[in-house]
Amino acid sequence: MADMRAFREAVDDWASGGAGETARELAAHLGVRTAVLLEGPSDHAAVEALAERRGRDLAAEGVCVLPMGGAMSVARYTGLLGPPGLALRLTGLSDERERPFYDRALDRAGAPRQGFFVCVADLEDELIRALGTPRIEDVLRAEGDFRSWQTFVRQPAQRDRPREQQLRRFLGTTKGRKIRYGRLLVEALDPDQVPAPLDDLLASL
């Protein structure tokens, strides 16, 4: 049975130059009405984790969460999924520094800007600031990564950097760790700690 993963894969193939027929057929079959555009898989993990915490089944609601592989791909995805293509409602997250790319892409596609919510640096930074270092270190302990973290912060290149920057760098040092912690950090949040861009995105869906 076709599922939302198949639709994501069809869209990615389309964005890479393939034909769009499969994506169109799956969108109709699955009742896709909204595409949530995110820069990467760690953002995807975070959004899905918060949806699950709130009892939401986004796929069943016709919402497809799509990691684009970087902000530079936003024009391609908005063109395929917005008014010029599948005419889905577009929403998502953008980083403050990448906001001009999103604005231009949305304007070119004839899609509204108001469905996109802006993180100061990125979603990872928002989660780190929301939780704070002590709570994140608790998560690292629970996951068996605390010793690696202690070794990392003692490295000469890291010693004088702010803790938040050290954490962001550490989470990106091992393949798959950033994606795994995208989910784990969301699961560690108290209900009133959810960063505003992520909270607002879920509320808009």
Rank of each mutant, 00 (worst) to 15 (best):
P67V: 02
L80G: 03
K175A: 14
P162C: 15
R147C: 09
G17Y: 00
E124F: 02
T91D: 01
V186Y: 01
A71P: 04
E39M: 02
V47G: 06
D103N: 00
I136Q: 01
A121M: 02
G18T: 03
A49S: 15
R168A: 15
R54N: 08
D199T: 02
R113N: 06
R56M: 10
D160L: 10
R54Q: 13
G182H: 00
A142Q: 15
F116A: 05
L123D: 02
L88Q: 11
E9R: 06
L50E: 03
G55E: 03
R104P: 01
T174Q: 15
P112Y: 06
S148Y: 10
K178G: 09
G82E: 02
L86T: 08
L90T: 03
L127Y: 06
L80F: 01
G144N: 07
A188G: 08
A10V: 09
A157M: 12
P83W: 01
L167W: 07
H29Q: 14
R135L: 12
E9W: 03
R89L: 12
G62H: 04
L127C: 09
L127N: 06
T133Y: 05
E48I: 12
A71G: 11
F7V: 10
V74G: 03
R5M: 10
H29D: 14
H44P: 00
D43A: 09
A142R: 15
D200I: 03
E96G: 00
V47M: 09
L131D: 05
G18D: 09
Q193F: 08
R168T: 14
D107M: 08
E39P: 00
L167S: 09
L140H: 01
F7A: 12
R89I: 12
G18P: 07
L185A: 06
T78G: 02
G17K: 02
R89C: 11
L184P: 01
G40R: 07
D107K: 09
A111P: 04
L80W: 03
R177M: 11
F116K: 00
